[in-house]
Design a protein around this nucleic acid. Structure first.
Lengths: 341, 341
DNA sequence: ATGAAAGCGCTAACAC
DNA sequence: GTGTTAGCGCTTTCAT
């Protein structure tokens, strides 16, 4: 079943005009007689004519379509950024084609491939966790495909990226914990392959170093974002001979089960262990205690990424890669509120 | 900057062949001499030739693209279903174009329009809350555009839909509350324009009627899914002369702030008020107390919707509308656990 | 086994 | 003002 088989040719025949006249009339070109305009418009409306964008795109070699590659739409962060990407794109008259990498480098490469075949005018990508070989992305750059990374970017690649200063954010979060009197601060990090996690780890170390407090051995643990490892590692920390009095986690997804496990193990939060996390998902506010978290500028990330991509698309010459660093905001809630207990 | 300006013609010229031969070789047609195949393949690889899907689509009048229209990707439910839609589509060799209605009928109609212009082969849609006039959808059906509704469907429209039995699910949830000894059960519903909410309301009424317990006046309250109205109405219920001993909410988004407000007001959950909600978002498990919620079969919804849509696309004749009703599962947690306090 | 030509639906350069 | 022609990149008869 074809969507709409009404074509310019059919309109032309029905009206006894040529296709080009009909085409011009529909686009309101001034050279067409008002009477003709009228007639064409009316019939088009009546037959519910829809221009075939495929054909238009082929002629103009511009599809008015952007491609987005994200690891996983089940993560609130990516869904929320896609929200603002779609919105910004729509406002600019662009459509959005999405592909998920499911954290796999192979799927990511395949997704990029598919989007390119679909002739997207540019690509917005957040890297898969598994992506270590950047060949498929390098090709894009060589081919001068308009490209903007967001959130998870490839540090070595000469490409535009919209990011937050993860290190500074983690440093700030750690300093906040230090300021409330915490001295034994642990960190539940993501997989070591995750750049973003390493940056946060660096910020954590930075703050501790500045305070002259190196983390005790075993105070940094890597988890894979599953509830299982998160709660296991949180408990392991709690059961240390000298347990931490504060815990920074790489993501709310990790913080929820960690906090849950700690509470079940009898830890009083924030009195015995303060918690600060990243992402500030909507549910943070409703946790018990409410969860302190570093808010990402979700809307801004999407808007900036789309704006930068459109700029690249419109630019006559290849543009210089730039790094846009957006501000985060530490939202302090009960899980790290008040002084030490 | 064009993605990849390498065309069949260029390959043909470089090899001293005709475009048709190159085209055939690339597609591995048997009539092409092995040597030629070889040569063509190699050059294509070397030049990183990418077929222009636009042109292919134009010839075949098939874009291998599906359109999805959802109210809001910030809602976990829609993001999660899009997750499975994209996955199922990708497995079938289809791409996914997304549009958001932002709960507005006008934007929904515009989104559909845009997707059609982009020549999507079919549409997956969850209606906007504001959609009361189905004209734009009726046109799709008349034009026999392959179409599958999910979650929020138009009851009067002769179209295929993938849904859950909201009434039965709400009935079951209410019965669960009754079984634990609750007798004064209130319901925080969504806007009265929301079909899905009305169905759940019906299920609630059904269970109460069966138990011979009509809800006290004022026990059904409509909220607009904002935290503000949710907590306000929950409090209003709690401050009634005869407050409820159980609360059913139309969505987790409503349940979180409602539960939060109740606890701040001193209500002990589940002893004084039991809570059951809908959607079973990941955070439910980590609420205090953990939140009982009706789980939607997210993956199945996406998979079924895509399967039904592809079936329509492939069918030579228009297919009969069908309603696929998927099973929900009440996940009982602490917020409604145990007998009455 | 390969090439020439037509056409998918549309726009644009060039007549008249 | 309007029609004719060519062409976007590809596939597909139809020849040879």
């Amino acid at each position: 079943m074809k969507p709409s088989p009404v074509t310019l040719k059919q309109l032309a025949q029905a009206l006894g005009l040529s296709v080009s006249t009909v085409s011009r009339a529909l686009r309101g070109r001034p050279e067409i007689a008002p009477a003709t305009q009228q007639a064409v418009r009316q019939l088009a409306q009546q037959l519910d004519y829809q221009p075939n964008q495929l054909a238009q795109s082929l002629v103009h070699s511009a599809t008015k379509t952007l491609g987005v590659v994200v690891p996983d739409l089940g993560y609130h962060f990516y869904a929320a950024v896609l929200y603002s990407i779609e919105q910004a794109a729509a406002q600019a008259g662009y459509s959005v084609l999405v592909a998920q990498s499911h954290e796999s480098q192979a799927l990511e490469a395949a997704g990029v491939q598919n989007l390119l075949r679909a002739q997207v005018e540019g690509l917005l990508v957040a890297l898969a966790r598994d992506t270590t070989d950047y060949a498929h992305l390098h090709r894009l750059i060589e081919r001068q495909v308009p490209l903007v990374f967001f959130d998870r970017h490839a540090d070595g690649l000469p490409a535009t990226a919209v990011v937050v200063d993860n290190q500074a954010a983690a440093c700030q979060a750690t300093q906040h914990l230090l300021a409330s009197g915490r001295r034994r601060i642990a960190f539940l990090a993501g997989p070591p392959t995750l750049h973003l996690s390493n940056q946060r780890l660096a910020g954590y170390h930075q703050a501790l170093a500045q305070a002259g407090l190196p983390p005790p051995p075993g105070y940094v643990r890597h988890v894979d974002y599953t509830a299982q490892t998160a709660s296991r590692e949180a408990l392991a920390l709690w059961q240390l001979p000298h347990p931490p009095d504060a815990l920074l986690t790489v993501s709310d997804r990790v913080a929820y089960p960690a906090m849950h496990a700690l509470r079940r193990a009898g830890a009083r939060i924030p009195e015995q262990v303060a918690l600060v996390s990243f992402n500030n998902e909507p549910a943070c506010e409703y946790m018990t205690p409410s969860l302190s978290s570093v808010a990402q500028p979700l809307a801004q990330i999407g808007q900036a990424a789309v704006a930068l991509l459109l700029a690249q698309i419109k630019a006559p010459k290849p543009t210089l890669p730039q790094r846009v660093v957006l501000a985060t905001e530490l939202v302090v809630r009960a899980s790290s509120g008040g002084e030490m207990g």
